[in-house]
Structure formats: structure tokens, C-alpha cells
Write a protein that binds this DNA or RNA. Structure first.
Length: 943
DNA sequence: TCTCAAACCTAA
DNA sequence: TCAGTTAGGTTTGAGA
């Protein structure tokens, strides 16, 4: 292509752009077409650079349409028809801008003196507004003064709506009645604004600005004014993205308050709400709403929790209990209207509740150091902070890759469809597990950052890969090439240093620095920054390999990922062999070492010695010796000793974890029920307790006894309902399920009861298994715990024994105890069973209840209301027993009630809380039921 | 009763 | 328009 061809190309492209954007009356689409010297990142290239066409269009949105035209192909006069591979044509504009200006997320930017002037036309609601050429901006690396956190203004808020009876609030019907707000300067312990906007009067609350309004319209506008005045940088809350913010916007639409949704920093720019779904294997499917508020970051703590922690419940209540050790009152939405329609005292009550819901997200933000961790993640990976919650892992790697590529004058092709060649590849080796209970110390050897170090050691990268056809063509010297165990060829660094290895080196070096600085740092704020940074650096390094293997991603390269795993497989086999060959009695060691297990980057070795100290010594020796046989920077480290060690199977084990020979650090469990979210607490607690008794106390009979007691309690119906709640994630929408499952069917039934509160995709569904006809499937027996509690439905203890408890227990006890099954599951403790009567379902509706004797439970046939003739003589004794029973239960209920009152923060008000995540709630409800029943029995003594 | 696949969740 | 990887154990429904 010569200069004339370029100008013809320009004209043709301009014409095609006009055709496909007929509706817009843009004078010119393609601003410039330049010839530039660049190189593609794909494959090792012998020449320095080659010519590329750089196309500059008038608006960001035109990039996509331009790309489409070029990919489909255009006909240029004199050159014929040609379709083009485009490069870097699929990059979000904000990211493109940041990369070009060398700006990273969470960055400090300087507008140098003399390079700006007062804004010619005010276009924003910002406190300072000025005009400056983008190229004059100075981006500062996060070092020294510039590593400090900005004093962000953070607004935490929560709204309450008055739903109709039995319905979840909907913006088309139900008014917003309260909004609680806290505004805090990042880093300060206390909010400097604390208010609650209420519909109608509300009694005063100490330390809070209570702002009553007559109409809902006034509330909404007051809130908008608050946003305008406080001008928050970050808006936080719990579930604000999916609920509170869209609700406010939609409500304002319904009320026709046109001036409400101007909440961003761009003057007169309206907030837009859009439905979005996010789906990835890591985070699952998640439906939410995309709310655009320019200039303010929305940080929804619910989203953050779901991404960062694997919990069995994500309710604000459960999360607060978990991280803050604090419960919150959970008022069911159907009660909210009653409180609103009461008086200023009941509305005050609601306001206190609303304030707490605004306060807890702020506490979580502080406690988990979210600002530090996310700002550091943004700084390390270069993406804007908002991407960290709204986008996946790959954008972070891509951002780093694009930045590095720009430095090296490389461009990244926009490859559509599947990557090169096959679409799956072999992963890591998991060594055969020699299951058993080990009473000798087991040393663990680990490769440090295995996959990153392989990529660095063998220079694996897009730009060092030599495809087979090139290998023949280019005639490269064999000594400059590496052939990977999977058969791929990469050039050595002498010829071309890979940019992935370079990124990884920088990440790991920066992590080392951060960790060293962390050791020195005294100031807690500085420590928070550094700790957040080292974590971000580690996570980033580990996700590079995943990025190359993501076939549906931006730039898959299975040659790289399959090479990485193939080296990994070779290395773990090599390590196992070396350990077993070197540490032998023949070579003068006391015992023959045995590798009893290993997974991906670790091997577990039984050296045969009986003290932790000796195992550590040999572990260190082995790690040093074996490290020497690998290419740098691959390193095998001795990490810990397990003693004793219970190996159940691949990916499942438990043991005491020792890093110094004096005392163990902790009990560690992998893969077994204690660390899984889909088991009920009863199983979790039981297994944890047994492991503790076996491993720590070395008390097997004690563990057995504990199991027996638990099983007996279960069968006698003495177990709290909260311990029987099983939770499972809803991973797809109803009709996509091929088979029926307990949690899916329950979600479906709940949807029929109340579509608005039923679980949806991505939610976790709690359920219990209830009694039903013999042979009924589990999915027919699952029920909502609250529903079970309210309707007094009996649970199925046998199911819990056979399908939940028994197998996990046997797996633990079998290596330790002979006849485990007989002893644990069929002993005398399984004989007494409490027969519960379903009170309101099935056949019992037609059954007539017969009175039974209060002494011996025999059916009473004649006259008496209380006792059979047999027990008549014990009248006085049995009466006293009944009275005592009632008074015990009253006391129990009273204690639990007080506990709930304390939790809600007031001792002279009714308890409204119905938190399905709180064990006290279940116990309180049960005590209430038991008490009522006991009173009925007492009433039968009619003298 | 056995076998297989779907679904879930975890290890690394 | 976007979505990090594979290996593996366990439970359960469904059909032979």
C-alpha cells in the first residue's frame, strides 16, 4: 500500500461508515488513517516491526462499527476486496484513555500549574472545574506521598419501602418511606453526616439528624439535594445496585419527578438503569442492574462479599455476624408498613433499623479494608475501581498486557471465536492418595507460585511462541529454542524476552518489595495499603495463566497454558521420584521416604521419622536439594508438617499443621465437610468436633461418644432447626435444570408463594428436609426453614442420619476404628426415637386427635382428661412435673426473648426480628411453641 | 440394584 | 458485549 492507496482506503472506509450509520449526521467519521510501524504480539517475529494502519475515528462508539466493516471486508479501487484482522479495536474507551495517558485506577493525577484555566463553560457539579489538555496531565506512580489514599467522601445509605401485605415492595405501587444516610471521610472513624429522612413525623434519635417530610416527593428531592451537597466520591450500601438505587430511580419515574435522577457529577445528566447479567465460572451467574452515576463509584458490599468470600448466606445479617460479630434485627418487609402507619415512635423504631442498615455496610467496608484493597488492586492492574466489582478477572490481565505491549511497540490482535487449535487442555497431576491415618509426621513440600515461575523459567509468552510451520520456515538455531513437554516451541530470552514473564517478574518483585515494606511499616494506614498491595500482586500473578487458557476470553493461547501444565506435571513427578530415590536406607537415611500424596504443586512426604523436628529437618533438606535441579526461578519450598494426618482421598484431608516443632499452629482441613458450604451446621460441627477430638485430644472414645450423643439428640428431636439448614447455590434458572434437585424445586415452590422474595439465580437457597411419605425423593421433602417453623412441620431425622451424617463420619472413622459403622450408626443410641406428629398436613387433617395420658402416653378411653387409670395414683407428682415443665420453658423463652431485645437495642419493645440466619431466632420460636404446648397440657388439669 | 450423568463445591 | 483454568469427590435423580 502506497500513500495513494491509503487515501483511497480512507475514502472507501468513510463511505462505508456513512452507509452503516445513516441516521447520524456526523460530518466525518474517519478522522485520520496513518501508516505506523508496529509488531504483533502473536508469535515470535524475526523482524523488528512491520507497517500497520492506524485509524482514528471521531467518536468512541464508531470504533466498533469501523471494526465490523473491516472484518467483513471492503473493496478498494485498484486493490480488490480485502478483509482485515483488526488490532486493539475492542477496548473500552475509558481503559484506552487511561492506558494512553499512563493512568491507572486509584491513581494520583497532577494538573501542572500554568497548564490549565478556569472552565470556559461549566458542565459539571464538581467543586473545581477547569480545562486542560489531556496530554498535559501528569500521572504519579503510587510511591511515597502518592501511595496515600485520597480522603474519599463515602455515602452509605439504605431505603425502606412500605410494601403491601404479603408482597415484596414494588416501585410501581409502594412508596419510599425512609432513607438513612451516613457520610464518612475515608480513614476517619466516625461519620460527619448522620441523618434519616422519614415520611411523616419521627421521634428524635440521639446523634442523628431526623428529617421528617410530608410527601414522598420531598424525601426523594431532599436525598438528591444531599447527594449534590455532600458530593460523595463513593456510594456504598448493601444490595444498592440491584435494589435501592433502581428503586429510587423507578419510583421517581412513577411519581413523575423529572428533576430527581440527576445524581452524577455531569450537569443535567440523568441516571440510567439497565438490566445486566454477569456470568463466569468463578462467580457464577448473577443478575443485577447497571446504574450509571457519572463521577461516583458505586460499591455494593453485597457484590463485594459474593466475589471475595465463600459463605453459606450473604444476608447483611449473616455477613455482619460473621465479620463484625454483630447481629442486626431483621424485620420482615410485611411489618414495615405497620410501623410506618403507627405513630412517631414506631416510625422511630423503623428509622433506627434503617440507620443500622446504612451503618453496617460502612463497618464492613472499614473492617475488611475494602478501600485499601480495591484501590491497590486498581493500581496494580490498572483498571478503574468500578471494574473490580462489575467485570471479571480477564480485564485485569488484559489491562496489564496492553500497557506492557504499548511500551514494547506491540499490538494485540482482536481474535474472535475460538482460539487456536483444540479447545481444552490437560491440567495438573494429582498424585494417587494413599489414604489412611498417619501417626508419623508428614512433611509438605510446595512449589512457590508454580505457574508464574514456570512461565518465567521457560519464557512462555504470546511473543515467544513459534508455531510449527514457522519453526520449519524460520530456521532458528535449536539451542535458542525450548520444546515444552506438550510439544510446543518457544524461543529463549536471548532471542526475545516474553512480555508475560516480564509482567510476572515485575508483579512478584513488587510483591517482595511490598512485603519487605510491610515488615518495616508501623503506621496502620500504611500497613493496610501495603498489605492490600501484596495481596493484589499475588492474585494478579496467579491469574495470568488462567487468562491464556480462557478459550472464550480476549486472547486465548492454549499453547501457553498447556505448556505450563505440562511442565507442572513433569515437575511433580520428578519431585516425587527424587524424594523417594534419595531418602532411602541404602543412602544412609534412617527410613525410606514415601510420597503419600501430592496435588499440582505439592508433595506430602512420610520420611518415617517420628518427631516433627526431624521431619522438618529432612523436609528442608529435600526442598533445597530438589530446588537445585530446576531452572530458576522455580523453587521448591518446605512449608509445613502435618502430624497427625488423616488422608481420606484426593483433595480431602485433615491434620494438625506445624511450622515450628514446639507447638502446632492450627487444625487444617481440606475438602471435607467442615469446609464445605453445602452441609448443614449439624454435620459441620459434628465433623469438626470429631476431628478435634481425634487429632488434637487423641481421644477416639471421646469422639465416638460425641457422635452417639449427637445422633441420639437428632433422633429424639432435640436438635435446633438452625443446625439442620442445608444451603445450596442456585446456579441457573429453573427450566435450565435437567434433573430435579431439592433446592431447585423449593425455589420453584417459593416462587409460587411469593415471586418477589423467592431466591433467584446466584442466590443461595436454605432448606430443611421434612417428613414425607416413605420413598419420597429429597426434592419432594425440601422446605423453607421459616415455613417449617411457622407451620410446625416435623423434620425427617432419619434423612439427616442416613443422608447427611453417616457417610462423612464413616469416612473419618473408618481408617481409625474397626467396625465404625456398627458402633456409630447402629448402637443402642439409635433406638429411642421421638415420633413427631405432623399437625397440619396430609392425612393428619382427617385424623381425630385422641387424648393421651400425661403420665405414660397411653390413649385415654373414658372420662378422664388427664391420666389413665394406671397413673391415677401419681396425680400429685405428675401435676407438679407439668407445672415445672411450663415454668422451665417460660424461663427459657424469657431468656431468649431478652437476648433478642438486647440485640435490637431496646428492652421495652416487642421483638420483631425474623432472621433466618440467627440461631437464637430458631430457638426462640421453638421455645415459644414448646411453651404454648406445655401450657395446653397444664390446662388439661382441670380441678 | 446397578450405572451414569448432572449438579455442587472444593483444591490447587 | 462479556465471561480466568483443570482435576476430583460426593450426592442424587433417572433409567436400564
Amino acid at each position: 500500500m502506497g500513500p495513494d492507496d491509503i487515501s483511497r482506503f480512507h475514502q472507501t472506509l468513510e463511505g462505508r461508515m456513512k452507509e452503516s450509520n445513516r441516521s447520524s449526521n456526523v460530518p466525518r467519521f474517519v478522522k485520520r488513517v496513518e501508516l505506523v510501524q508496529k509488531q504483533t504480539i502473536m508469535h515470535y517475529q524475526t523482524q523488528e516491526s512491520q507497517p500497520f494502519l492506524k485509524i482514528v475515528v471521531a467518536l468512541p462508539t464508531m470504533v466498533a462499527s469501523c471494526r465490523g466493516i473491516l472484518e467483513r471486508g471492503i473493496t478498494i479501487e485498484g486493490l480488490g476486496s480485502k478483509s482485515f484482522l483488526t488490532y486493539e479495536s475492542n477496548i473500552l474507551f475509558a481503559l484506552r484513555f487511561m492506558i494512553d495517558c499512563n493512568i491507572v485506577g486509584g491513581n494520583w493525577i497532577e494538573v501542572p500549574a500554568g497548564k490549565y484555566r478556569k472552565a470556559a463553560r461549566v458542565m459539571s457539579y464538581c467543586q473545581l472545574e477547569l480545562d486542560c489538555l489531556f496530554s498535559d496531565l501528569v500521572s504519579h506512580a503510587a510511591e511515597g506521598e502518592y501511595s496515600k489514599m485520597a480522603p474519599f467522601r463515602i455515602l452509605s445509605f439504605d431505603i425502606e419501602c412500605a410494601g403491601r401485605k404479603g408482597h415484596f415492595p414494588e416501585p410501581t405501587h409502594d412508596p419510599v418511606i425512609q432513607i438513612a444516610n451516613l457520610v464518612t471521610h475515608q480513614g476517619e472513624g466516625q461519620p460527619f453526616v448522620r441523618n434519616v429522612m422519614t415520611l411523616k413525623s419521627c421521634s428524635p434519635i440521639v446523634g442523628v439528624d431526623v428529617m421528617p417530610f410530608d410527601t414522598e416527593r420531598d424525601i426523594l428531592l431532599a436525598w438528591r439535594d444531599l447527594i449534590r451537597e455532600v458530593d460523595p466520591d463513593i456510594i456504598i450500601g448493601y444490595n444498592i445496585c440491584k435494589f435501592d438505587l433502581p428503586y429510587l430511580i423507578e419510583r421517581a419515574e412513577v411519581l413523575k419527578i423529572a428533576e430527581f435522577p440527576i445524581l452524577g457529577r455531569i450537569r443535567n445528566s440523568r441516571v440510567r438503569v439497565r438490566d445486566t447479567t454477569f456470568s463466569s465460572r468463578q462467580y457464577g451467574v448473577r443478575e443485577s442492574k447497571d446504574v450509571t452515576i457519572e463521577g461516583r463509584v458505586q460499591f455494593d458490599l453485597l457484590q463485594a462479599m459474593q466475589r471475595d468470600y465463600k459463605l453459606s448466606s450473604y444476608s447483611l445479617n449473616s455477613v455482619s455476624a460473621h465479620f463484625l460479630g454483630e447481629q442486626k434485627e431483621d424485620v420482615h418487609h410485611s411489618i414495615i408498613s405497620d410501623l410506618q402507619n403507627g405513630n412517631s415512635e414506631t416510625r422511630r423504631r423503623l428509622a433506627v433499623y434503617c440507620l443500622k442498615d446504612a451503618y453496617l455496610p460502612q463497618r464492613l467496608l472499614d473492617k475488611l479494608m475494602y478501600i485499601y484493597n480495591y484501590v491497590e488492586m486498581a493500581r496494580v492492574t490498572g483498571v478503574p475501581i468500578s471494574f473490580l466489582l462489575s467485570r471479571g478477572q480477564s480485564i485485569k490481565v488484559l489491562s496489564q498486557l496492553l500497557r506492557k505491549a504499548k511500551q514494547k511497540n506491540l499490538v494485540i490482535p482482536n481474535i474472535k471465536g475460538q482460539g487456536s487449535g483444540q479447545d481444552t487442555f490437560e491440567g495438573a497431576t494429582v498424585l494417587e492418595a494413599r489414604a489412611g491415618y498417619y501417626e508419623k509426621p508428614i512433611a509438605t513440600l510446595d512449589f512457590a507460585s508454580l505457574y508464574p515461575s514456570i512461565m518465567m523459567a521457560y519464557n512462555l509468552c504470546y511473543c515467544t511462541l513459534v508455531p510449527p510451520e514457522d519453526a520449519r520456515k524460520l530456521n532458528l538455531p535449536p539451542e535458542s529454542l525450548n520444546k515444552t513437554p506438550s510439544g510446543e516451541i518457544f524461543v529463549k530470552p536471548e532471542l526475545q524476552k516474553g512480555i508475560l514473564p516480564e509482567i510476572l517478574e515485575e508483579l512478584l518483585a513488587a510483591r517482595k518489595r511490598a512485603k519487605a515494606d510491610l515488615k518495616e511499616a508501623k503506621d496502620p494506614l500504611e500497613r493496610a495499603v501495603l498489605d492490600g498491595r501484596q495481596l493484589a500482586l499475588k492474585v494478579s500473578a496467579n491469574s495470568v495463566y488462567g487468562f491464556t487458557g480462557a478459550t472464550v476470553g480476549q486472547l486465548p493461547c492454549l499453547e501457553i497454558s498447556s505448556s505450563v501444565t505440562s511442565y507442572g506435571r513433569q515437575m511433580i513427578e520428578h519431585t516425587k521420584k527424587l524424594v523417594e530415590d534419595k531418602f532411602t536406607t541404602v543412602a544412609g537415611y534412617e527410613h525410606n521416604a514415601e510420597v503419600i500424596y501430592g496435588d499440582t504443586d505439592s508433595v506430602m512426604v512420610q520420611f518415617g521419622v517420628s518427631t516433627v523436628e526431624d521431619a522438618m529437618k529432612l523436609g528442608r533438606e529435600a526442598a533445597d536439594y530438589i530446588s537445585g535441579t530446576f531452572t530458576k526461578p522455580i523453587k521448591l519450598e518446605f512449608e509445613k508438617v502435618y502430624f497427625p494426618y488423616l488422608l481420606i482421598s484426593k483433595k480431602r484431608y485433615a491434620g494438625l499443621y506445624w511450622t515450628n516443632p514446639e507447638k502446632f499452629d492450627k487444625m487444617d482441613a481440606k475438602g471435607i465437610e467442615t469446609v464445605r458450604r453445602d452441609n448443614c451446621l449439624l454435620v459441620k460441627n459434628l465433623v469438626t468436633e470429631c476431628l478435634h477430638k481425634i487429632l488434637v485430644d487423641r481421644d477416639v472414645p471421646g469422639a465416638v461418644q460425641y457422635v452417639k450423643n449427637t445422633i441420639s439428640d437428632l433422633l429424639m428431636n432435640r436438635v435446633d432447626l438452625s443446625l439442620l439448614v442445608i444451603t445450596k447455590g442456585l446456579t441457573k434458572t429453573g427450566e435450565d435444570y435437567a434433573v430435579k434437585a431439592a433446592h431447585v424445586e423449593l425455589a420453584e415452590r417459593m416462587r409460587k408463594r411469593d415471586p418477589a422474595t423467592a431466591p433467584t439465580v446466584g442466590d443461595r437457597v436454605p432448606y430443611v428436609i421434612i417428613k414425607a411419605a416413605k420413598g419420597a425423593k429429597a426434592y419432594e421433602k425440601s422446605e423453607d426453614p421459616i415455613y417449617v417453623l411457622d407451620n410446625n412441620i416435623p423434620i425427617d431425622p432419619q434423612y439427616y442420619l442416613e443422608n447427611q451424617i453417616s457417610k462423612p463420619l464413616l469416612r473419618i472413622f473408618e481408617p481409625i476404628l474397626k467396625n465404625a459403622s456398627k458402633e456409630l450408626l447402629h448402637g443402642s443410641h439409635t433406638r429411642s426415637v421421638s415420633i413427631s406428629t405432623p399437625s397440619n398436613s396430609g392425612i393428619m387433617k382427617f385424623a381425630k386427635k385422641k387424648l393421651t395420658c400425661l403420665g405414660c402416653k397411653a390413649i385415654i378411653s373414658g372420662g378422664s382428661q388427664t391420666l389413665c387409670p394406671h397413673c391415677k395414683g401419681r396425680e400429685a407428682e405428675l401435676y407438679c412435673k407439668t407445672v415445672a415443665n411450663v415454668s422451665d420453658l417460660e424461663m427459657l423463652f424469657g431468656r431468649l426473648w431478652t437476648q433478642c431485645q438486647e440485640c435490637q437495642g431496646s428492652l421495652h419493645q416487642d421483638v420483631l426480628c425474623t432472621s433466618r440466619d440467627c440461631p437464637i431466632f430458631y430457638r426462640r420460636r421453638k421455645a415459644q411453641k414448646d411453651m404454648a404446648e406445655a401450657r395446653l397440657q397444664l390446662d388439661r388439669w382441670d380441678f
